[in-house]
Design a protein around this nucleic acid. Structure first.
Lengths: 194, 194
DNA sequence: GTGTTACCGTAACCGATGTTACGGAATGGA
DNA sequence: TCCATTCCGTAACATCGGTTACGGTAACAC
């Protein structure tokens, strides 16, 4: 039984390379060769770790979802008053750091790819809906008297605001610095409370 | 002097074909051949109307900007109380119709392309900034006492909300029907007035 | 140390894509 | 009617991208 490999670790490494390429070169630059180069290997390893390029993209998409969900879980687990938890979760989804800016560019790349790939689109919807559910729950924690539809509408507004800022920031960071994100989130939450 | 052509009309036709391909096939499907087929011609005409594929994209992008600006101008020209004008302009930017849904998908395609093309990115920023200026002006019409920075922050929040909804709707129209757009715009404007 | 076996780098293949060059066809004037 | 000239479809070219197949190489068992 000769040398063994850790397929899971390889796939995570390659998914990370996918993110880097998407952040640096955009969707048109996302080739198997570019991913291999970022990962420090050749296309041979890539095509042995994944049956096809689409499988690589799907894995990278799912892993991104998982990572962001973990961060949101952590923000929730920190506890505190409902309004503060909601604010923290939204801030973790916003573009307040350089890494978050990269992530926003990656997110746009995946979104554009999803508009041409039903399976990728399905993952996108599943991810976004689970985020809507999370924020709906957090809104409900601060407003127990509100009926579910009202909570959900408020959640969708909050998410749209944050994702819109992320998308706009991806193409024009100078116009949408972190202060704009913070101000927008604060204003939206103020409206929710008042 | 043999047959003459209307180069401008050809370019507009081809730009329309670019939008159709982008809406139907997404950015990966946007090839010169696909555009030619949509336009009912061959790649020969395309490459005679534009020196290169990038020039075609830039023209299509600019034309899209121009059309949306014209619609906003029309909404403004209709007149009425400042709050109503602002609401109408935002509603024209939102995804309330099937054509608007196509447009949102096209917008995502251009955005993803812009993240890999500095010139396309420059056009995107110019367009978005002019929209920020427009909305800032409309906010100011309803709130003459507000200083410019406050108007601009409010405008950026409104635009982020609408664009976020558009982007999310492009991938998941069922979760973000027109009613959600209308509700979000109404709530944001209510907060602005109150 | 040696043999066996899984791993992966190399390199080729094939379709697709942007771009170019040529030639036929259609138009407007003489 | 015929010609000259512009336009654009055809088809080829070079390159690139995803995928595949082969062969060397490195690790583990004995």
């Amino acid at each position: 039984m000769p040398r063994q490999r850790d397929v899971g670790a390889q796939r995570e490494l390659l998914s990370g390379a996918v993110w880097q390429v998407l952040a640096a070169e955009g969707l048109p630059g996302l080739t198997v060769r570019a991913v291999a180069e970022r990962a420090g290997c050749t296309t041979g390893l890539v095509m042995h770790a994944f049956p096809t390029k689409r499988a690589l993209l799907l894995h990278a998409r799912d892993l991104l979802h998982q990572r962001t969900a973990e961060r949101a879980d952590a923000a929730e687990a920190a506890g505190g008053p409902p309004a503060a938890v909601l604010r923290d979760v939204l801030c973790h989804a916003a573009t307040l750091t350089a890494e978050a800016a990269d992530e926003a560019r990656v997110w746009v790349g995946f979104l554009a790819a999803a508009l041409a790939d039903p399976e990728l689109a399905e993952r996108h919807r599943a991810h976004n809906r689970s985020f809507v559910n999370r924020v709906t729950r957090l809104v409900g924690a601060g407003h127990p008297r509100w009926a579910h539809p009202r909570r959900e509408r408020a959640a969708k507004r909050l998410i749209a605001l944050v994702e819109g800022l992320n998308v706009l920031t991806a193409a024009d960071p100078a116009t949408y610095p972190p202060a704009v994100h913070r101000d927008a989130i604060a204003a939206a939450l103020r409206e929710l409370e008042g």
